[in-house]
Structure formats: C-alpha cells, structure tokens
C-alpha cells in the first residue's frame, strides 16, 4: 500500500492520501490524473486495468485501489 501512496503523491503532491476516502469523487484527482494513475499501477504491479474497473469506488481510497490491484493480480 505504501507504493500506492508514493504513486499517488507523485501525481498530486500535498494530499494526505492515506486518510482520504474520496480521492476521485471528492475531485482530488481528475480524469487526466486517473489515467496517469492507471498507467503507473499497471507498470508497477504488472496488471491490466479494464474498463469494468473504471468506477469511482475503485479509486476513492488507497485501500480500494489496493483491493483492486490484488483482485487483478489473483485473476
């Protein structure tokens, strides 16, 4: 999860991502940031994030992102 926080911080600095639960629905990351995040996650964890995962709840908190990454790694 630390790596996810690092990736998020490299996209947008000055946000306490560890304690944030509305990263996308709260407007912290916009659509351009999200595509950057997806590219970084895919490279870092060797996964492919399909359109079925492109929903706010999968990106709203570090835990949600981590759950999605684990699910994709297990698939």
């Amino acid at each position: 999860m630390d790596r996810i926080i690092e990736i998020l911080s490299s996209i947008k600095s000055g946000v306490d991502f560890a304690n944030e639960d509305q990263i996308v629905s709260g407007g912290i990351l916009d659509s351009i940031d999200i595509t950057e995040l997806i590219t970084a996650l895919e490279e870092e964890f060797d996964i492919e994030i399909g359109m079925e995962y492109m929903e706010n709840e999968n990106f709203d908190s570090v835990e949600a992102i981590w759950d999605m990454v684990q699910e994709l790694q297990e698939a």
């Binding site: 659509s31 999200i34 595509t35 994030i49 399909g50 359109m51 492109m54």
Partner: peptide
C-alpha cells in the same frame, strides 16, 4: 465512455 476507453 470516450475519454477513459481511449486513454486506457
């Protein structure tokens, strides 16, 4: 339905 599908 356009931006994300194109981006990813």
């Amino acid at each position: 339905y356009v931006y994300y599908p194109v981006s990813v």
